[in-house]
Structure formats: structure tokens, C-alpha cells
Design a protein around this nucleic acid. Structure first.
Length: 467
DNA sequence: GCATGATCATGC
DNA sequence: GCATGATCATGC
């Protein structure tokens, strides 16, 4: 006898929710121990076969075809502060380059399969067997009207690129909530034919970006924290049917060419001009938010907002920093799963301010994402950094400044070594450190000042500002 | 004048 | 106390 009624949404969802607080081993009984299923899709496949008891398939129709629900299982990770986040993006269906360009969103195979999802989120642990992962959150998911609009727009951006014969240039950062992520074990194996260009393209799948998955998790856990502001809820743009990019442009364009004091006057706000986050506050104010508000759409899309001060010669005054890395976890993570790669694959919003005399003018706000070839070039910086840390090759020389302060010169890649990126300190001071997995060869120290990857200011000028 | 090492201000 | 988003300061 069936354990649930596969013609009833409520029955399926209720049956799924019984998984909460259990492991697969507990939920499926003894026969699961001899499951014999290998490979990467394991958790989801066992869930389908032994809990829901339907044959594993990769059909175009949803997993529960009679009610149009697609089952998705996905891992969670726990942060240092005990909060729960998505461990990775959620991968949806493969993009069929040869067919999708003939489709319309509402009737597309993507929307037919993925418009109503049923999520099973489990706690991932590298110390445990997957049958013993604890299932934390289970619920179904349908997109809000605003979210669906963004996702449709994303789907169309991906489609347009295929129609333009640029499937090989697709990249996660092209879109907001719905990404085109690579799919397949090795690059060579996953090369596919595209319809409007002889060049083969990497196989890709539609995916929900980690930021969007975190949004789903927070909703299901009913634990929406933080002070959010929504671009889509501001009076001026309500019902206007605009894309995120259009809304952002609408806010910034009236202030192009205006100096900062004037913008402050027009907006009637007074952020602390001496604070280092002054321009970040001003950017928020231009978008219509308080400086302590997170912009929900940007969080969901993993958009990296960066404000840049251009010198009179247009070279950014500073390079662009990212969060500092832990030496130990940096060398334990493959490039494919690395924080740095996922940052570089993000969509960026750059806001350029230009110094002229004693004044600062708003020049332009620009969405941007890094081309795949440049991500590979930046990987060299990551490679050298990982190798240095693994071999304890950190300190090259220690000198003293005139004031008698110690200055340590390192072997980390400098901005001259790579067109795109370099590694530099990012710490409170030189005593603000992380442990080294291998003691430094030269000095023997076992901890070192926190460092991070930076985007070279020249690269920002040449490839983002001036293009 | 720029590259690089060092550090700051804010908010949670 | 720390992450974030930055700027400062020195010396080549």
C-alpha cells in the first residue's frame, strides 16, 4: 500500500514533513542499509527510492507529475554563530541549448518542472555517513510574484545569450536569482553543441543561487532575521514591472554628475563623512534605504556592492577587498568549492565616484560580472597562495621602518604578478591573525596576519570602469 | 606616484 | 570581538 496519495499535494507534503528531525536510516527502515546506490546524487536518490518509493528518473516532468511538484534535497551548513545556511546552490534542470531557444517561459520545460518545489534540507557533516544526516527543514516552495518576475527575466537573459550564439560565455554572474551553473564531472566531457555557434559550450544547469536558497531556508524556518529593505516595495517602483537593474538605474541616474554634498542635500540625509563606509551609506541612501538595512534582492542574488573612489586620472584610489580567508580552510578546499571562486562568479554592483579638485562626483552605477576567462586567470593567484600556505612559504624578509616598526614582506602574489588579483593583509593590525597549518619556513611563526584576495585597482579601471 | 604592508570606523 | 567595507602610510 502507498504511504501517501500521489494525486494530492497536501498528502505528499504532509508525508514529506514526517522526515523532520529524522535521518534517512530512521525514516526508511532496515532495507535501506543495503541500498547499493553510488555516486553523487546519493541522498536525493535514496530519498526518492526508499522513502517516497518511486523509481529514480531524470524525466522532463516533475517528480510528482500528477500534482506538478518537484522534489529537491539539499545540504545545510552551520555557521560559527550557529545559524544555518545553504551549503551550496540548488541545481535544477539541465539547460537544453538546442531546444530552449524555441520556448517561452510560462510553457517552458524549466517552468513546468520547477515552478513548485518540495524541499528536504539536511545537515551535512563530513564525519557522518549520509544515511545519518539529520533532516532539519521540509516544506514546499512556490515563488512570490516578484521573485517569479526576476526568475523569468533571468531565464530570458540566459535564453538571449544562447540565441546570440554565446552559450559558451554563460556565467553565474549573468543573472540574479536563477543561475546557469556548470554541470558535469570534467570540463571536456561536459562540452555540448550550441545552436547558433560552432564553438562548443560547457554543459550547464539552471540553479538557484546560494543567496536565494538562504532566503527559502529562512522562510521555511520562519527565522527571517536582520533589517531588510526591498527594492520592489518602494512606492516609486511598486507595480512598475521593472527589473532589478532598471530599478537601480532609476535611483542612480538622477544623481549622475552631481557632487556628493549636493546628493546629500537632495536626499536630506547626513551620514558621517569621516566614516570609512561613508560612500557605502550614501549608496544605500540613493537606493532609498537606511545604512543598516540589507537590500533583500541583493542578498537573494548574492550581489556584491562595491563603491569606488576614482582619482583624477581615473585609477581607483584603492584596490577592492574581499573577506579575509582562514589559512587552514583555504588549503582544505578545492578551487571548485572555494570562496574566492564563488565571489568572482557573483554579480557585482560597482558605484564609481570621481575625485575632482576637492569634490567627489557620482559618475556611474554599473552591474558587472567577471568573464570566465578572467576567473581562470585569477585562479593562478589562488593557486600560488594555496601552494605557499601548504609549504610554509610566507615571509620573504623582515625590515624596519624609520619609526622602528617591523614590516614583513611576503611571497603572496602581488598586484604586479597578476592582471586581476593579488593577496594583501586585511586585519585590525599585524597581531590580528589566523593559524598557519604549516609553520613559516623563515620565521617559524605558526600564526599570521589575516589576509584576503583583492581585485587590482588597475583591473577595475581597465575592465569595469572604462568599459 | 604607485605598490604594498598596515590599520581604521562602524555595527552587530 | 569580529566581520565588513574600506583608507592610511611608507618607501621605492
Amino acid at each position: 500500500m502507498k504511504k501517501y496519495d500521489d494525486t494530492s499535494k497536501a498528502s505528499i507534503i504532509d508525508f514529506a514533513k514526517k522526515l523532520r528531525g529524522q535521518t534517512l536510516r530512521e525514516a526508511c527502515g532496515k532495507e535501506i542499509e543495503a541500498h547499493g546506490i553510488q555516486g553523487k546524487g546519493n541522498f536525493g536518490q535514496i530519498l526518492e527510492k526508499y522513502y517516497f518509493e518511486y523509481p529514480i528518473n531524470s524525466k522532463a516532468e516533475p517528480d510528482f507529475p500528477k500534482v506538478g511538484i518537484e522534489l529537491k534535497s539539499s545540504p545545510l551548513k552551520v555557521l560559527k554563530n550557529d545559524q544555518v545556511r545553504a551549503k551550496e546552490r540548488v541545481v535544477l534542470s539541465i539547460i537544453d541549448y538546442l531546444k530552449v531557444h524555441e520556448e517561452h517561459f510560462e510553457t517552458s520545460s524549466f517552468w513546468q518542472k520547477n515552478s513548485h518545489l518540495l524541499f528536504v534540507f539536511y545537515l551535512h557533516s563530513k564525519d557522518e555517513y549520509l544515511l545519518d544526516y539529520l533532516i532539519k527543514l521540509v516544506d514546499d516552495w512556490e515563488y512570490s510574484a516578484d521573485d517569479k518576475r526576476v526568475i523569468r527575466h533571468d531565464w530570458e537573459i540566459i535564453n538571449q545569450k544562447i540565441k546570440d550564439g554565446k552559450a559558451h560565455e554563460l556565467s553565474e554572474g549573468d543573472t540574479f536569482y536563477l543561475g546557469a551553473c556548470t554541470k558535469g564531472s570534467t570540463a571536456m566531457k561536459s562540452l555540448r553543441v550550441q545552436p547558433f555557434n560552432d564553438e562548443k559550450a560547457k554543459q550547464r544547469a539552471y540553479s538557484l543561487k546560494p543567496g536565494y536558497v538562504n532566503h527559502i531556508i529562512a522562510k521555511i524556518a520562519q527565522a527571517e532575521t536582520g533589517v531588510y529593505g526591498k527594492l520592489f516595495e518602494q512606492p516609486a517602483v511598486l507595480c512598475a514591472n521593472l527589473s532589478i537593474e532598471e530599478i537601480v538605474n532609476l535611483h542612480f541616474k538622477p544623481f549622475y554628475g552631481m557632487d556628493v554634498d549636493n546628493i546629500l542635500k537632495k536626499l536630506n540625509v547626513k551620514p558621517n563623512k569621516n566614516a570609512k563606509n561613508f560612500l557605502a551609506s550614501l549608496t544605500k541612501a540613493i537606493l532609498g534605504f537606511e545604512s543598516n538595512q540589507e537590500i533583500e534582492e541583493f542578498v537573494k542574488a548574492d550581489v556584491q556592492v562595491k563603491t569606488i573612489r576614482l582619482q583624477e586620472n581615473t585609477l581607483p584610489k584603492e584596490s577592492v577587498s574581499f573577506p579575509c580567508f582562514e589559512y587552514r580552510s583555504l588549503i582544505e578546499t578545492d578551487w571548485e568549492d572555494s570562496e574566492f571562486k564563488s565571489i568572482l562568479e557573483s554579480k557585482f554592483l560597482f558605484i564609481f565616484y570621481q575625485i575632482e579638485g576637492k569634490k567627489l562626483f557620482l559618475k556611474e552605477a554599473k552591474f558587472w560580472n567577471m568573464p570566465n576567462a578572467d576567473i581562470l586567470e585569477a585562479k593562478q593567484v589562488w593557486d600560488v597562495t594555496v601552494k605557499n600556505i601548504k609549504t610554509g612559504k610566507i615571509v620573504k624578509e623582515v625590515t624596519k621602518t624609520k619609526a622602528g616598526k617591523k614590516k614583513r614582506h611576503t611571497y603572496f602574489p602581488k598586484s604586479k604578478h597578476n592582471r586581476i588579483s593579488h593577496v594583501r593583509p586585511h586585519a585590525k593590525n599585524s597581531h590580528d591573525t589566523f593559524d598557519l597549518p604549516v609553520a613559516d619556513n623563515k620565521t617559524g611563526v605558526t600564526e599570521y596576519t589575516k589576509h584576503c584576495f583583492w581585485l587590482n585597482n588597475r583591473y577595475v579601471r581597465d575592465e569595469i570602469c572604462l568599459k
